[in-house]
């Protein structure tokens, strides 16, 4: 009896453990199944490279190139803001902050990474956008630049806290060896510690990037929403995530538009999946290099 019970529990846990795999496959299947009609109708290549996104026109056009460009330009812009500030903050926390200050700042950074994206979007819309409009004399404050700045601020805590972790994994002996050779604190930090944590830092950056590409509410609120290829950084844009969020409400179930939105979801999923796989591989190699994992 006891033996049966034990086997039963083991079996139950095994089945439940597989739900994550089940959900991941489920997501892929759903995106493929719902996205396939549009890929068949337009052709995958034309869907990706088409420059006109007019889903509600007659005849409708489904080209998501402007949306991809929008996502990438906002993400790259955000990285320009977030990487120096995030890595710089992490280096400060790691090297310069005293024990007491670090004990306050580290949780503070962590809590701030929990601020919901809708709050950032709201802040961007109410405060940053009017500010940008005034300073740069542009027709609307809701544009790619504002989106990049707000998303950059949003990504700082993620990058900072992951980078700080990576710096913490660098063995003390590296530092000591460098000091022993007469290097200054700054030289040691920049030329020894940071490169040694290099792959950890790149993991942090890639994960930050992946988070930004997938971020929805903030860009939906501040990027302006024009589905055309931008000519300047102050043009309104419409990234992939916000297209899905904005248009799903009006798309008729089963229509080509509905299917196109799922296909955008598929593209998005594949992009973030690639970024995650890259970062995972880097971090695996890195852990082995520092002798942390087997």
């Amino acid at each position: 009896m006891i033996r049966f019970k034990e086997a039963l529990y083991r079996w139950i846990f095994t089945v439940m453990a597989f739900t994550s795999l089940f959900f991941l496959l489920g997501i892929i299947i759903v995106l493929l199944r719902e996205g396939l009609p549009i890929l068949m109708a337009v052709g995958p290549f034309k869907f990706l490279s088409g420059v006109h996104w007019y889903p509600t026109y007659d005849p409708a056009e489904f080209g998501i190139f402007p949306l991809i460009i929008a996502s990438l330009s906002v993400a790259i812009g955000a990285m320009v803001v977030a990487v120096p500030l995030g890595v710089g903050s992490a280096l400060y926390l790691h090297e310069l902050a005293g024990e007491r200050i670090r004990h306050i700042l580290k949780p503070a950074v962590e809590i701030l990474s929990a601020v919901p994206s809708i709050v950032f979007g709201f802040f961007g819309m109410m405060i940053v956008a009017p500010f940008v409009q005034k300073i740069f004399h542009v027709p609307t404050g809701l544009n790619a630049f504002t989106a990049a700045v707000v998303m950059g601020i949003m990504a700082i805590p993620t990058i900072a806290s992951l980078t700080e972790d990576a710096l913490g994994f660098v063995p003390r002996s590296f530092k000591e060896a460098s000091y022993a050779l007469g290097a200054s604190r700054w030289q040691t930090l920049i030329k020894i510690v940071l490169p040694a944590a290099g792959s950890g830092v790149s993991t942090a950056i890639i994960l930050g990037m992946s988070r930004i590409v997938g971020e929805t509410m903030t860009v939906l609120m501040v990027s302006g929403g024009a589905a055309v290829i931008p000519h300047s950084i102050f043009d309104p844009v419409r990234p992939m995530t916000s297209t899905i969020a904005a248009e799903m409400g009006e798309a008729v179930t089963g229509s080509l538009h509905y299917s196109a939105l799922f296909a955008i979801g598929l593209v998005l999923f594949l992009m973030t999946l690639t970024l995650n796989i890259i970062s995972e591989n880097i971090s695996k190699k890195y852990r082995i290099k520092l002798g942390l994992d087997r």
Binding site: L31, E34, S210, E215, T216, L261
Partner: peptide, 19 residues
């Protein structure tokens, strides 16, 4: 699968939930 599930954009979860 857990690691990759963690990286899926939130709007894609929305699509999955909808479908």
């Amino acid at each position: 699968s857990i690691n990759n599930l963690a990286g899926v954009p939130s709007v894609v979860f929305g699509l999955f939930g909808l479908a």
